[in-house]
Design a protein around this nucleic acid. Structure first.
Lengths: 146, 146
DNA sequence: TATTGTTATACTCTATAACTATA
DNA sequence: TATAGTTATAGAGTATAACAATA
């Protein structure tokens, strides 16, 4: 398989990104399964825990999900007693998503599990390179083009 | 939405990778649609064009797809006359996937389209940073952990 | 008129297991 | 016994359109 790295595809950022993301996603899902979460539900939980009181619309934009997918994810987390929808007093159309105490507790352990999986994958890079990677990705991920 | 960047999630490499990849994938699929391809079929075509004569198994490993998915992708490309399966004389179980002349021609224009989409997305980074990003991703994507 | 959340639907992608023919 | 390709199936993820309530 290694000789395929000589192909032009291996030079394309999109491909490298896709392959790296596939590895990261698989590792994350394995690590989170023990806690009844997947990468997507974990991400929603993490934002609910953040204290920023995101609306469902904000969650959809931030996570690059369709609003209808957010409905399903929150339904699931809510059924498990991890988050709840609260009416936004400033806009009666909107719900704000906040974590319950159980959600906060689960996030804590799930975060450690996810972090450990991340570490294993990224440990081929030194700390400084990991930080540099994060900085570069942040630029693309939140540029106006997205 | 921007205030969610203060949440801890925005510091996690997995999340940044997922969001960046989602943008890249969406842009790639839009750019390739005009040529009847998607990112995955384009990737297979690119490797078929490379001259490396990959087996289906090698394609699966390299693209991080299940071998059964590769079957479907090649069926599709073959039906469109873009690639063909050739028996591997050294292993009668294996097929080797090569591009037809039409496949080579389509790859050429599709490659330019994909490249243009990439450029738009990554143009927030200077050339040197793009190269650095590619180098870092290559390390993770092909480390033994994967 | 436009936006938030919701429901519904179709399509794509991912993951698994089992089968065949070869090795 | 193990591997390459194939078939089948179910579950997760993606994309679109339409609707009620509200702005």
């Amino acid at each position: 398989m290694d000789r395929l790295r000589e192909s032009g595809l291996a030079d394309e950022l999109s491909f490298l990104l896709a392959r790296t993301n596939a590895l990261s996603l698989a590792a994350g899902n394995v690590a989170l399964a023990a806690h009844g979460l997947r990468v997507r539900s974990y991400s929603v939980l993490a934002l609910a825990v953040s204290g920023e009181r995101p609306s469902q619309r904000e969650l959809a934009d931030f996570l690059r999900l369709d609003p209808s997918q957010v409905v399903a994810l929150i339904d699931e987390l809510q059924a498990d007693g991890l988050v709840e929808r609260q009416p936004d007093p400033r806009d009666r159309r909107a719900n704000v998503v906040v974590a319950t105490d159980a959600g906060v507790r689960l996030h804590r352990v799930a975060h450690h599990a996810a972090r450990a999986a991340e570490e294993r994958l990224y440990s081929v890079l030194d700390e400084e390179t990991q930080d540099r990677l994060a900085a570069i990705l942040r630029e693309i991920a939140f540029s106006s083009r997205g």
